[in-house]
Amino acid sequence: MSHDVERESEFEKRTRALFEASVESLDGRTRSRLNQARQAALAELNARRTPAWLRMGMPLAGVTAAAVLAVWMGLSPGMRDGELQETGWPVDDLDIVADVASFDLIEDVEFYAWVAAQTSQANGNSG
């Protein structure tokens, strides 16, 4: 506390102590509602940090990204060379990735570019 305590009068100390006591004696309902208000503010902060275009276009971008990923996987050398039959086409995997609700996986376009790079590198090493 940055207040100049040393120069405070007894009166000022007493009024502050009363205030502190009244803060500590707040009832549970009020504390709970303050907690809810804080959570709402934090949700606002997190929402604000997500770019507007991403929030608005997240479902569309997710589907588009999943489609691009699917096409890319279909055209990858491993798949064309029969890996499809050996390993089985990951239809279930693709369903999950393409699920619009799975935003945690599909919200970053940059991520998919990175995945593509990693996979290309892995394919290059194995082939």
């Binding site: 509602r33 303050l34 604000r48």
Partner: peptide, 29 residues
């Protein structure tokens, strides 16, 4: 909690004070 008590002292109503504190938190965020 301190902000609530300060608002409560002035507006003299719990619900109004809570609304004011929540608005202030949201605006700050």
């Amino acid at each position: 909690k301190r902000a609530f008590r300060i608002a409560r002292i002035i507006v003299r109503n719990d619900d109004d004070a809570l609304d004011i504190v929540q608005d202030a938190m949201l605006q700050l965020a």
